[in-house]
Simulated assay, not measured.
Amino acid sequence: MIRVSDIMEKEVINVKNGKRMGFIMDIDMDVNDGKVISFTIMGDGGRGFFARGGEDQVIFWNDILKIGCDTIIVNIGSELNLNEFNI
């Protein structure tokens, strides 16, 4: 079992493009079923109540691949375009 406070300290990283997405600031749950529906991620603007900057994004439970010690790995969006880097 994992605590909500433990989840909120983990950084979310997208496996498709390797980008750091931010930190979880809210969790949506179905209280009737006792299941997590989604997480709201705070953008790269920082952590805390007065943080400014990045845009919030919703990550659905089905998009989570792995919850590790320090990070949560998700699989969302488009893949990294290597042509942008002349590789």
Rank of each mutant, 00 (worst) to 15 (best):
M21G: 09
N86E: 07
A51I: 04
M25L: 00
N14R: 07
I64S: 05
I27G: 06
M8N: 03
A51R: 14
D28P: 00
D44T: 06
E55F: 10
I37G: 11
L65Q: 06
S5D: 10
I67W: 10
I64R: 05
I13Y: 01
N62S: 06
E55L: 15
V12A: 00
M29F: 07
I73D: 13
R20W: 14
N14F: 06
R3E: 13
F85E: 10
R3I: 10
M8H: 00
V58L: 04
I73K: 15
N86V: 06
C69D: 09
M29R: 14
K35V: 01
R47D: 05
V4R: 15
Q57L: 06
K19I: 08
I76T: 15
E84T: 09
M29W: 11
Q57N: 03
S78Q: 14
G34I: 02
V12I: 08
D6G: 12
D28Q: 08
I72P: 11
V31W: 11
I64P: 02
L65G: 06
N14K: 14
V15F: 01
I27R: 04
G68E: 14
G43L: 02
G18C: 15
F50Q: 12
D63L: 02
L65S: 00
M29I: 11
R20M: 12
M8S: 05
W61F: 06
I37S: 08
G54A: 10
V74T: 01
I64N: 00
V15I: 11
V15A: 05
G34W: 13
G54N: 15
N83F: 03
G45N: 07
R47T: 03
F49S: 12
M8K: 00
N62C: 03
D63Q: 05
N75Q: 14
K10V: 02
L65T: 09
F85T: 09
L65V: 10
K19N: 03
F23A: 02
G22D: 08
N62V: 04
I41C: 07
D56H: 09
F23M: 05
N75W: 11
N86Q: 13
E11D: 05
I67K: 06
M42H: 12
D63C: 14
K19W: 13
L82P: 13
D6H: 04
F23P: 01
T71G: 09
G22P: 11
M42S: 10
S78P: 10
S38A: 08
M8Y: 08
I7T: 07
G45W: 10
N75S: 15
F50D: 01
E79L: 12
K19M: 08
Q57G: 06
I87R: 14
N17C: 13
A51T: 04
I72Q: 05
I24A: 09
M21V: 11
T40V: 06
I64A: 05
I87L: 10
N32P: 05
D6M: 01
E79G: 07
E9H: 10
K35A: 02
V36L: 01
G53M: 15
G53A: 14
I67C: 05
G43D: 07
D26V: 01
N86I: 07
I64F: 05
N14D: 09
F50M: 12
E11K: 14
G18R: 13
I13E: 02
G54M: 09
I59F: 03
N62M: 06
L82G: 02
N83G: 06
F23L: 13
G48N: 09
D63K: 07
D33W: 10
M8W: 03
V36G: 04
D28S: 14
F39G: 01
N17W: 15
D6R: 12
N81S: 13
